[in-house]
Amino acid sequence: MKTKNLFNLVKVTTLSLGLFITSCTNESFEESPENLETPQLVEKYFKGTLIEVEELENGMFKWGDVEFNPEQLQDEKTIYDSNQTPGEIDAKLGLASGVRKWRDNTIVYVLDRSLTSNQRDVTFKAMEEWTSKTNIKFKERTNERSYVTILNNGDQCNCASASLGDNGSRGRINMGVRTGVGVMTHEIGHTLGYLHEQNRSDRDQFVDIFPENIQNGAISQFRVDNNSVNPGPFDVRSIMIYSSFTFSKNRQPVMLEKNGDRIPFRSVLSAGDIAGTNKLYPAGDGGGGDTDTCEGIDEWVSGRQYQVGDRVTYRGKLYERDFSSWNLIKECDTTNPPADICDGVAEYNRFTRYNPGDKVTYRGFLYELQSNRRWSNQGRCGN
């Protein structure tokens, strides 16, 4: 039986990647160690859609293998404007923070001391899968403000979780002791900003979902998300799709292709993953210098649908579309902007009361609070 909007049916009581998955590589997602207590779940909104997440000790929230920072979620339903005007967001930065691309196509990382030699080897092989086939690059952190910390979660499983997109200094990937290259490649996809392929709004045209076979509490992993921004058309071969047996409770398939074919565990990037990533993270996207020109860039048009990576001019400024908002690149008449406009400016704190004229840094950008209680994006911070 096919189902839609599954996230309203039951609560998530198992926050792990499912078991009973087979592939020609003998690698599979596994559930977390047994005898774990059922996590306490809370309801939050992600870009206007209600989801149930586990609150972690570090203040992050976990949904399946995806981790959200508090500013990516809201307690109340808000109208998510996918075609917002460049330059302004609501007074609470988190309401529009959503998901951000990595600057310069580069994921900056820190390898935690907890990692084993095998986990390091797996990490580098997964990185190579992305760098050898797409425009994505990796750089070990020196003094960058935005980076992802790769940690050993201590679980004896081929499992992992990752924060969604660029999360400033709070990004992380948590690896199980036996995490394989395929799983790690999948988690890097989340770090790039991608959700699961089976959550896409058009998925029912390509696959059938069988909720009667899904583990109790895991059905929200197969919900339809109208805000999914995975690149390109639906791709049943994507590294970001679950297999036919992920979260199966009875060794029966939870998802099949329309023709009845099983979906195996994917361990390498598909042609769609490669093409889509190179579209969202195009070659030569340096995020500064001579590539940031207003010449030949059309003015923003209200009502027009824009894609991630699109650039527009608006009121004399150049903007680039991110997953959830517009990022200011530069003033159109400014050839050499300051090296770092964020020097001496404190990071945004959601518990601080700000006044008009106050400036904060937030996930690699400088914001100024306007008299109408809306934050104005003042541009990227320098490294």
Score class of each variant (00 low, 15 high):
Val268Pro: 07
Gly272Thr: 02
Ala218Pro: 10
Met255Trp: 05
Thr246Cys: 11
Pro231Cys: 06
Gln252Leu: 15
Ser244Val: 13
Ile239Val: 11
Gln215Ser: 09
Thr246Leu: 15
Phe245Asp: 00
Lys279Trp: 12
Ser243Cys: 12
Leu269Trp: 00
Ser244Cys: 02
Lys279Leu: 14
Leu269Arg: 00
Ser243Met: 02
Asp273Cys: 04
Asp225Ser: 09
Phe247Trp: 10
Ala218Lys: 11
Asn227Asp: 07
Val224Ala: 12
Ile241His: 04
Val229Asp: 03
Ala218Leu: 07
Phe210Ala: 03
Gly193Val: 06
His196Glu: 08
Gln198Arg: 07
Gln252Pro: 03
Asp261Ala: 15
Gly232Tyr: 00
Arg200Cys: 06
Arg237Phe: 10
Met240Pro: 05
Ser267Gly: 09
Tyr194Arg: 10
Val229Gly: 10
Gly193Ala: 01
Gln205Ile: 04
Arg203Lys: 06
Asn259Tyr: 04
Asn199Trp: 11
Ser228His: 13
Asn226Ile: 14
Ile239Pro: 01
Pro231His: 11
Lys249Thr: 12
Gly260Asn: 01
Pro253Tyr: 00
Ile263His: 00
Asp225Leu: 12
Asn250Thr: 11
Asn227Arg: 13
Ser243Ala: 15
Val207Gln: 08
Glu212Gln: 13
Gly232Thr: 00
Phe234Gly: 05
Asp208Arg: 08
Phe222Leu: 13
Phe245Leu: 02
Thr191Pro: 07
Val207Ile: 03
Gln198Ile: 06
His196Gly: 10
Gly272Trp: 00
Ser248Met: 09
Asn226Gln: 14
Ile219Pro: 12
Asn230Met: 14
Met240Val: 07
His190Ser: 05
Phe247His: 13
Arg251Thr: 02
Phe247Glu: 14
Arg251Pro: 08
Gln252Gly: 04
Gly260Phe: 09
Met240Asn: 05
Asn259Pro: 04
His196Leu: 01
Ser244Pro: 00
Ser267Trp: 13
Gly272Ser: 10
Asp204Arg: 03
Ile214Pro: 06
Ser220Leu: 01
Asn278Pro: 07
Leu269Ser: 02
Arg262His: 15
Ser270His: 08
Asn230Gln: 10
Tyr242Arg: 15
Arg251His: 06
Glu197Trp: 11
Arg266Asp: 02
Asp225Val: 10
Pro233Asp: 04
Tyr242Met: 12
Val268Asn: 15
Arg266Glu: 11
Arg262Val: 07
Pro253Phe: 03
Phe245Arg: 00
Gln205Lys: 13
Arg223Gln: 09
Gly276Ile: 01
Asn213Glu: 01
Thr277Lys: 03
Gln198Pro: 06
Asn227Cys: 10
Tyr281Glu: 11
Phe234Glu: 13
Arg251Leu: 05
Ser228Glu: 06
Ser220Lys: 07
Ala218Val: 11
Asp235Ser: 01
Asn230Glu: 02
Phe210Arg: 05
Phe234Asn: 08
Arg266Val: 07
Gln221Ile: 13
Gln252Ala: 09
Asp208Ala: 06
Phe234Arg: 11
Asp204Val: 13
Val254Trp: 13
Pro233Phe: 15
Glu212Ile: 10
Leu192Gly: 08
Val254Gly: 04
Met255Glu: 02
Thr191Ile: 14
Pro282Glu: 14
Gln205Val: 04
Asn259Lys: 14
Leu280Ala: 07
Gln215Tyr: 10
Ala218Gly: 12
Phe206Ile: 11
Asp261Trp: 05
Arg251Cys: 08
Ile209Ala: 08
Arg223His: 03
Phe245Cys: 10
Gln198Ala: 15
Ala218His: 14
Ile219Leu: 09
Asn227Tyr: 08
Leu195Gln: 08
Lys249Val: 09
Phe247Pro: 06
Leu269Pro: 00
Val254His: 01
